[in-house]
Design a protein around this nucleic acid. Structure first.
Length: 573
RNA sequence: CGGGGCGUGGCGCAGUCUGGUAGCGCACCUGAAUGGGGUUCAGGUGGCCGGAGGUUCGAAUCCUCUCGCCCCGACCA
C-alpha cells in the first residue's frame, strides 16, 4: 500500500478521554475513531489487525474440528424467554420492538440461538459431538464502556458452542478448546495465563479465563508461585482457617455494650475503640431471591459476593437498602451485628478465629466488644466467603499467593445441561432413550485481543506489533522523495516485496524524514527498510521495530531476506 | 443508579468568576525554502461556543430545563 493513498491519519494529540495505552495508541495511529460511547469506527489499519487475529482464531478453530456458522445479531425475545434469561439478564440486553410490536434484542451472546439451531437439526447421538462457532459483532449495553476496544458496547467476538452426548466427551472438548486457545494466544504473541474463573450470568459449572498479563487490566488474578494455582480474584479460594493451629493465649472476656456515637465504618470503629481491624466482625445484610441473609466477614477482609451467591445457591443477591437494614437489625446502617438477629447468618472462615471481637449492637451509636462467635451468636454455616488478598496461603499447596492484573481475552465454560434442558435440545442415545445434550461454550474477544497485544507490546514511540497480527509487515521509508535514485530503489523493493506476498507500506509522502520515522514507529510495523544515502553503496537499512540497531543490507538481498525472516516468525509450531 | 467533572473549528486547550459578538497550538489548504527523527517563513479554509428557554440594549459568559460525554464506585459472557 502507498501511504499517499492510504486512510491513515496519525495524531500528535489524543482526545482527553483516552486513558489506557492501547486506546491512545489506536487513536493516534488512526486505527479507530469513536462514534458514540463504546461504539467505534474501525479504520483500515485497525481492521487489518483485527482480521489477522480473526484469521488465527479461524484457522485454529477449524483445525480443532469446529465448524463456522453465522447467527443473527437481532434475536426474537421468545428464545430468551424460553431459556429464562429474558428476565434475568438485565439492562445489558438491549431490547426493542419491531413495527409489529414484536419484541427483539441485540445478541450479547448466542446460547439461545445456537441451542435452537441444534435442536432443530440433531435427533441422534450419531450426529454428536458438534462444535459450532461464529465470529460476529455482539452488542452489550455496558453500564460504563471504557478503554476503547477493551470494553466497548459493540464488539467482535468469536463464540463457539459444543454439544455432546456424554459428560466425558464434553470434558474432552473443553480440554480441546483450552489447548486451542493456548495456541491462538501464543500465535498472537501474547504473554497470558489461563486462570480458574467465575461462570457469571452465562451459567454453567466450571470455567477458565485466558488473561493477558497487563497492569491496565480490569481483572485481578491470584497466583501461587509454588504450585501454579491461579484464579480470578472473584473465584480464588481461600484456605480455611485451622483454628486448632492457631492457639491463642487470649481468654474470652464478658460481652459488653459500648457507646460509639456516629462511629460506623471499619476504620472509624477500629480507631475509636483502638482495636485492629482484624478484631472487627463486619455484618452485611443481603437481599436475595431466597430472602434476606446476613453475611459476616472479618474487618480486614472484603466479602466476595460471587462466593456468597454460590454458597447460598441463590439466583441473585444485592446489598440491602437502608430501610431493609433498619428493619432487619433495628438500627441504622453501620451498627449491625449478628447478636440477637433472627435471620439466617453465614460467616466467613475468618470469623472462626476472632476472639473478643467487635460488632455492631443493632442499636444506633452502640457496638459490642468482647464478642465471641459460638458463645454470643450462632451462625448457620462457616464458609469461604471473602476476597483473597496478597500474601494469602494457597488453597492447594499452602504456598504464598500474589495478586496481579490481567485482561480477559478468552473464556471457556462447561455449561452442562442448563440450556439444553430449558430449551429441550434432546437426542436419542444408543439405547433409544431421549436425553438432553451436554454443552460447552467458548469465547474470545477479538478487539480486546488486539488491544491487549498493544498493551503488552509498545514503547514511548508507539505500537510494536508481533508479526502474526501486524497490519503490515514491512514499512519502506524513502528518506527523501525528491531524490529520484532513492525513490527508484524504494519502488523496486516495494514491487519485489509485493510480488512475494509481503504486506508492505511504502511511505511515498513528500514529508521530511523525521515525520516518517515517527509515523513508522507509531504504526508499529515490525520491519522497516530505510532507503537513503547508503544506496550509493548499493545498500539499505533494515531495522526491526523492537530493536535499537539497524543493519545494512545489500538492496537486492532485502526481499529474499525479509521473506525468510517473516516466514520464520509466522511458522506455526 | 450514587459521587465528581466536562461540553468553545477534526484534535488539545484559553476565554466564563468580572456580559460588549471568539482566540491559541496541532491538523488541513496555497506558496517558498529545507530534506536522516514531528524543519522554517508567509498567506489561507473552517466554529452562530452541545440544545431549548429566560434575564439583558447586548449572552460562550448570568439563570432554568434538557441532551451528550468522561472519571470513581456499584455492575459485568
Amino acid at each position: 500500500m502507498r501511504y499517499s493513498g492510504s486512510f491513515i491519519h496519525t495524531l500528535k494529540e489524543v482526545p482527553a478521554d483516552a486513558e489506557v495505552i492501547s486506546h491512545r495508541l489506536m487513536l493516534r495511529a488512526g486505527m479507530i475513531r469513536k462514534v458514540a460511547a463504546g461504539v467505534y469506527d474501525i479504520l483500515p489499519l485497525g481492521l487489518r489487525a483485527l482480521r489477522k487475529v480473526e484469521n488465527i482464531v479461524r484457522e485454529e478453530m477449524n483445525r480443532a474440528g469446529a465448524l463456522e456458522v453465522l447467527m443473527p445479531l437481532v434475536i426474537p425475545a421468545e428464545l430468551w424467554k424460553e431459556s429464562g434469561r429474558w428476565d434475568v439478564y438485565g439492562k445489558e440486553l438491549l431490547r426493542f420492538k419491531d413495527r409489529h410490536e414484536r419484541e427483539f434484542c441485540l445478541g450479547p451472546t448466542h446460547e439461545e440461538v445456537i441451542t435452537d439451531m441444534v435442536r432443530r437439526e440433531v435427533r441422534s447421538y450419531r450426529q454428536l459431538p458438534l462444535n459450532l462457532y461464529q465470529i460476529q459483532i455482539k452488542f452489550r449495553d455496558e453500564i460504563r464502556p471504557r478503554f476503547g476496544l477493551m470494553r466497548g458496547r459493540e464488539f467482535i467476538m468469536k463464540d463457539a458452542y459444543s454439544f455432546h452426548a456424554a459428560e466425558d466427551d464434553a470434558d474432552r472438548e473443553y480440554q480441546n478448546m483450552y489447548d486451542t486457545y493456548t495456541r491462538i494466544f501464543e500465535r498472537c504473541g501474547l504473554d497470558f495465563k489461563a486462570v480458574e474463573a467465575e461462570t457469571g450470568a452465562i451459567g454453567g459449572r466450571f470455567s477458565h479465563e485466558f488473561m493477558v498479563l497487563a497492569d491496565t487490566g480490569e481483572d485481578v488474578i491470584v497466583n501461587c508461585s509454588e504450585c501454579g494455582y491461579s484464579a480470578n480474584l472473584e473465584r480464588a479460594e481461600c484456605k480455611e482457617l485451622n483454628v486448632a493451629d492457631m492457639p491463642s493465649e487470649e481468654v474470652m472476656l464478658p460481652l459488653k455494650k459500648v457507646g460509639t456515637p456516629d462511629v460506623k465504618s471499619v476504620e472509624e470503629v477500629s480507631s475509636f475503640l483502638k482495636v485492629s481491624p482484624d478484631k472487627l466482625i463486619k455484618t452485611l445484610v443481603y437481599e436475595t431471591d431466597g430472602g434476606e441473609v446476613v453475611a459476616l466477614v472479618r474487618g480486614d477482609f472484603e466479602l466476595n459476593e460471587a462466593k456468597l451467591k454460590r454458597h447460598l445457591g441463590c439466583e441473585w443477591l444485592v446489598l440491602a437498602e437502608e430501610d431493609t437494614v433498619r428493619r432487619v437489625t433495628g438500627a441504622p446502617v453501620g451498627f449491625a451485628g449478628p447478636i440477637g438477629l433472627k435471620i439466617r447468618i453465614v460467616a466467613d472462615y475468618s470469623i472462626q478465629g476472632v476472639i473478643n471481637g467487635v460488632t455492631g449492637a443493632n442499636e444506633g451509636d452502640h457496638h459490642y466488644i468482647n464478642v465471641n462467635p459460638e458463645r454470643d451468636f450462632k451462625v448457620s454455616a462457616f464458609a469461604d466467603l471473602r476476597m483473597a488478598v496478597d500474601g494469602d496461603s494457597c488453597p492447594r499447596c499452602g504456598g504464598s499467593m500474589g495478586l496481579s492484573r490481567g485482561i480477559e481475552v478468552g473464556h471457556v465454560f462447561k455449561l452442562g445441561r442448563k440450556y439444553s434442558e430449558a430449551m429441550k435440545a434432546c437426542f436419542l442415545d444408543d439405547s433409544g432413550k431421549e436425553q438432553s445434550m451436554i454443552m460447552g461454550c467458548y469465547g474470545i474477544g477479538v478487539g480486546r485481543t488486539v488491544a491487549a497485544a498493544i498493551e503488552q507490546n509498545h514503547d514511548e514511540n508507539g505500537i510494536i506489533w508481533p508479526v502474526p497480527i501486524a497490519p503490515y509487515q514491512v514499512y519502506i521509508l524513502p528518506v527523501n522523495c525528491k531524490k529520484a535514485d532513492i525513490m527508484e530503489t524504494a519502488e523496486r523493493i516495494y514491487a519485489e516485496l509485493v510480488d512475494r506476498g509481503i504486506e508492505t507500506i511504502i511511505d511515498d509522502r513528500d514529508e521530511r524524514a523525521g515525520v516518517k520515522f515517527n509515523d513508522a514507529d507509531l504504526l508499529g510495523v515490525p520491519w522497516r527498510i530505510t532507503v537513503g544515502s547508503k544506496i550509493k553503496e548499493g545498500k539499505v537499512e533494515l531495522k526491526r521495530r523492537d530493536s535499537a540497531e539497524a543493519e545494512l543490507v545489500e538492496t537486492d538481498r532485502v526481499p529474499g531476506l525479509l521473506q525468510d525472516r517473516i516466514r520464520e516468525e509466522l511458522k506455526v509450531s
